[in-house]
Structures are given as structure tokens and as C-alpha cells.
Design a protein around this nucleic acid. Structure first.
Lengths: 325, 325
DNA sequence: AAAATTAGAGCAAACGTTTGCGAAACGCTT
DNA sequence: AAGCGTTTCGCAAACGTTTGCTCTAATTTT
């Protein structure tokens, strides 16, 4: 069965297309009788307006693009869930694209967004991305870009981030409160902005009287191995900058058959899912990507409303107590 | 800056719109000189064809809809990742919608798909959904529907599922091979089709000489509590039907300070992520939602190619050995 | 009763592409 | 010089909507 159109309805009813269009929209020019006839037929024919035609005619898409390295990630999924929810509430659709951490595919996805005349895009950069020129095109076309998580260095763009410094500070404070003396602190790739921010805040908060072993791990496996080694030095606490690192550290501790928190305490910074998988649950400073999604969306709406106010926003953070500290 | 169109280029070059269109597509009718002039200008003007116009003109969208209860779920995310990858490889875009397990929102999402003239949809039903009439409309319009995971009961539709029976059989066989004697087997909601399938296959495979304690849990917390209780009976093995249940069971075992696998063995059925978070890693029968995504996509492409062959497909399953059995 | 208002509906253009068809302009053959 | 085939391009319609304008009758006003 071919799709129902205004023309089809108008033909069947012997009235003009414009009358049908207006009738369906309750335009006051159209008589009640006509409206009813039109609506009934539209209903039985399962009429659904063609979004492409509407978009073309109106030069609007009510569509957002969202580009992430991968959708299969416990941080992004909550973010996406939040953005999708808000989009629907505001009558927008969402086109989700994965870059696979590949700059070429990212570029391809950006083209797709432009071709679909998206109203705006949310982007978490691929780790390969160096050329920011692609994104300036969006600005030239007045399409807002909201960066999140993996954001660019230059600050003439909209960025929303989790509370990197604050969460690290909160975690450090919690450690201090518990009067811990020797901490193994594991951070991620030292070149990443997120690592720098968290490391700096953490070190700044920790007392000098507390012994600090600082390590860097790129993967969960690295974190595990490195923790196994560092446990020789008998730290009383392990701090993990991210879920990825936490997973490795916990494995190492479980392997070493240490009791948590008696033999060793653990604290992390997390979105909230991973820490609840263990017993005892891991104490963490929350950096909710769901909240980040909400924040990103409001930033997007502000930009669309004409705010040329380029801003960097951060979410809040709070300590969620498990039994690991 | 307003968007570049064929008309704009044609005006600037003093040639007709159709010539511009053909030049950009390397149509043989157009001379090399003209092609070069057109392409250069298109380049400097950042021309990107308007997808809405193309879709309208061609009555095709090259767009798939994907509807899930929530995107924030370690099963769906892999599925989505797979479908997105394949879509891109085949020049399709993906519109991802969440139903929030709400039938109304699901209906709303389906309308959105129709309005956007999607080429096909992937659906995991909300738990509320009872009225299948909404989906028959897609059939009437020749839009393929591929159900996955939460599929309808009636079998006049395309369904792709993970290997429920097979995975349970594999897990049971692994238990038998290890000569275990007393098994705590935890399953999900007994009303769900997936539970019935897995339970049936599991029981059928397990020897009568093996002692079997069968329990049902709806949530991770329930599974934990129930495991704590059942541990009193000293099972030598715990089998978990799903990740959700596994999480609870592992917590209970960690709380009881039992050594795995010496004191107690664990085996599950899983997508593959959760089991790797523990030490030792959990042995599981794999039911990959990533593979399911690939399967769903090929089913979709077959339908689009005109196959009226309604089918139910299942993925394969294999044993992934951790150190927990 | 003539004029003015109003209700109800249609015409046609526009959004940006694609494409069948036709039309110049040119070179080539007889 | 007339006929013919190419090459290169333009015209115009179509996809489905929306909307400013016009038009006809019917109703109201003076």
C-alpha cells in the first residue's frame, strides 16, 4: 500500500490540497463539516505527514545529531538516555552515530549530520581527532555544537563536563576523613585533560603527611597489573580515577584475597553502575553522565534560543558511600 | 550563512541547476571543464546535498528506526552498536528511540518512524505492549519489522533471539563435565518466555543424579538475598540465568567470603561484559547481543530485498571459560 | 436595495533534488 | 549544401507540505 498524502485525500474528497492541510490543522477558515470529513478519511487511511516534505518546506529538521566513539559504554549510554528523553519531550528526534574512535568515520558522521540539516549536534571527540576545522563549518551555518566528555582544548566552544576537579576533591576529602595514611592513586592517560584536572585537584587536597603513590594506567588490564605490583608497598587505600581503572584494581585486590575495607580501602570516581556490582559496594564520588546529558541538552536549547554565550558547564558531584572505605 | 544549494551554485556559475546536479554526479553528458568549475565552487561553498529533498524526491529515506525500552542497558548497547555499524556500512542512518517500557511512548515512537518514512524498524517490545495492531500498519506499508529480545508471541513476524535453549544446555553440560553434585540454579521471572526456554533446557540437560535447587529472582537484590539463604544448603555450584541475577549472586558469595571456585563454583549466561569484572572471571555461556545485532541487520536486509520469508533466527552460543567453574 | 463584510475554499509558489525529454551547436559525411 | 550524429546543456515536472493571496457566495450593514 502506497503512503497516504494530502493529495490523495483531497482527490478522494473532491476538495483542494490546501483545504485538506488546513482542515487537519484546525484552521479557522475551514468549516466543521469539512474538517470532520477530512479527519475521518485521514484516519481510516492512516495518514501520517511526510516529515521530509515538512522539513524541506520549513527548512527545519527538529533533529539532533549525537556522535560518540562508541555507544557501547556505560558512561555514554546514560548520557544518551538523558538526551533522548529530553529530545522527545521537546519534539526533537535524535540521530546517533558512532565514530569508533576513528577521525575519518567521525568526519563522515558529521557530513551526515549536515546533509540531514540537523538543528544541532552533541559530540564526544574521537581520540584521533586533531582537525577542528570540520566543526567550524557548523558554526558558520549556525548549527550549535555542544561538546561533552572528550572536549577540545580551545575554549571558544560550548562544553559540558562532569565535575572533574570537584569529584577528585570529594574523594580525597573522604580519604582524609578516614585518616588513611598511604594511598595508591591510579589515574588514566596523563595526556588527557580529564586526567590532569583530576590529578591536580586530588594532589592539592591530599595532606602532605599522607603518603601518595601515583600511577597511570590506560586500560583495565594495566590497572590490574599495576595494582598487583603496588600492593607490595602495603597501601591502606586505593583511589581509582575512573570505572575502567576501578575494574582492574578490584580484580587485583580480589586476586590478592585482601578484605575490603579492613585490609585495604577503595574509593573511586564513577558514574554509579560499576561500584554497585561488588560486595562491599565501592564508595565513589559521583559524576553522573545522566545528569551530564540533561545539562548538555539545556546548553543546546540555550544555544538554539540564540544565546551566543559560549560556556563551559560542569555537573555537580557528591559522595556515594558504599562499604569500601 | 545560509546553506548552499544547487540553485545557488548554478546562479553563481550562470548555468542551469540540472547541469550542476549532473556535474556533481559525474554524469557523462557534462563536459570536463564544467564539471571542474562546478566541483570547485561546490567545494569552497561547502555544499552538502539536502537529505530531505533527496528523500522526498526519491521516496526513500535510507533510515532505520530502532526502538528499545531503554538505551541504558548493557544488553541493548551492544546490540545498538552492531546495528549502527552495519547501517553505516550500508549507507543507512539510524534513529534510536526509547519507549521507557511505556506503550504510549512506544506508539508515539512508531508514529515518528512512519512520519520519517523509515525503511524498516528494529523493535524490542516494551513490557506493557499488548496491542499489536500498531505493527500491522507497518506491514501494510511494506516496512519490514524485525523484533529482537522482547519479541511478540505470534509467529507471523520476523524475530531474532539469542540462543536461549542452547546457552542453557551449554552451561548445564559444563557443570556436568566438572562433576558437580549440588547446584543452585537461579532463573528470572517465571512468566517470561526467555525464562521458560532456559529453565526447560537446563533441567533437561542436568542429570537426575545431580541435586538441583531452583529459584526465581526478578532483581539483582532478590538474587543476592536468595543466594545468601540458599548457601545454607551448601551447593557446590551456582548457575545464573542472566547478568542481573549473576550480579546479585556474586555479591552474596563475596559477602559470605567463599572462595571461587574452590568453595563454590559459578557459571552464568551472559552477554560477556559483567563476567569479566570479577576475579576470577566468571565462566559463562555467551549470548552475544552484538552478534544478535548483526543477525537482526541481515534479517532486515533480507526483508528489504523482498524476502517474504518470515523467520525466527537465533544466534549461536559458546562456552567462555573464566576461572569460576 | 446597494454596499460592505465575512465565511469558506482554491491557486500557485516555494522548499532542493533528480531526470526524461528536447534543443542548440558543432563536426562529419555524402 | 543538405543531412546526420554527437556533445553539451536547459526546461519542466515531480516528490508532499505550507501559506499568502485571490475568489465566490452568503451574510450583514447602511
Amino acid at each position: 500500500m502506497t503512503n497516504t498524502t494530502l493529495k490523495k485525500i483531497s482527490g478522494l474528497l473532491g476538495i483542494s490540497i490546501s483545504t485538506v492541510s488546513r482542515a487537519l490543522k484546525n484552521h479557522p477558515d475551514i468549516s466543521e463539516k469539512t474538517k470532520i470529513r477530512v479527519k475521518e478519511l485521514a484516519n481510516t487511511l492512516d495518514y501520517e505527514p511526510n516529515a521530509n516534505a515538512i522539513n524541506l518546506r520549513s527548512s527545519k529538521s527538529n533533529l539532533f545529531g549525537l556522535i560518540v566513539p562508541t555507544v557501547s559504554n556505560f558512561f555514554y549510554e546514560s548520557f544518551i538516555a538523558a538526551v533522548e528523553e529530553e529530545s522527545r519531550r521537546n519534539n526533537y528526534s535524535l540521530m546517533i552515530l558512532q565514530s569508533g574512535d576513528n577521525a575519518d568515520i567521525e568526519g563522515e558522521n558529521l557530513r551526515l549530520c549536515r546533509q540531514n540539516r540537523v538543528s544541532g549536534i552533541f559530540v564526544s571527540l574521537s581520540s584521533e581527532t586533531v582537525d577542528m576545522a570540520v566543526f567550524t563549518k557548523f558554526k558558520e551555518h549556525n548549527i550549535p555544537v555542544v561538546f561533552f566528555d572528550k572536549v577540545p582544548d580551545n575554549n571558544d566552544c560550548n562544553r559540558v563536563c562532569v565535575a572533574d576537579a570537584l569529584s577528585a576533591t570529594i574523594a580525597a576529602s573522604a580519604i582524609i576523613d578516614k585518616k588513611k595514611k598511604k594511598i595508591l592513586a591510579i589515574f588514566g592517560n596523563p595526556n588527557l585533560l580529564i586526567t590532569k584536572k583530576r590529578l591536580h585537584a586530588f594532589k592539592k587536597t591530599i595532606d602532605e603527611k599522607i603518603e601518595l603513590i601515583i600511577e597511570h594506567a590506560n586500560t583495565s588490564a594495566e590497572a590490574k597489573q599495576l595494582t598487583l605490583n603496588a600492593l607490595q608497598q602495603n597501601p591502606d587505600t586505593v583511589f581509582c580515577m575512573s570505572d575502567e581503572i576501578l575494574i582492574g584494581a578490584v580484580k587485583a585486590i580480589q586476586k590478592s584475597q585482601l578484605k575490603v575495607p579492613e585490609d585495604i580501602a577503595i574509593i573511586g570516581i564513577s558514574n554509579g553502575f560499576i561500584p554497585t556490582l561488588y560486595y562491599p559496594e565501592i564508595t565513589y564520588a559521583e559524576t553522573s553522565s545522566y545528569k551530564l546529558g540533561k545539562l548538555a541538552f539545556s546548553c543546546m536549547m540555550a544555544s538554539l534560543a540564540g544565546s551566543n554565550f559560549i560556556q563551559e558547564l560542569t555537573t555537580e558531584s557528591l559522595l556515594v558511600e558504599g562499604g569500601s572505605l
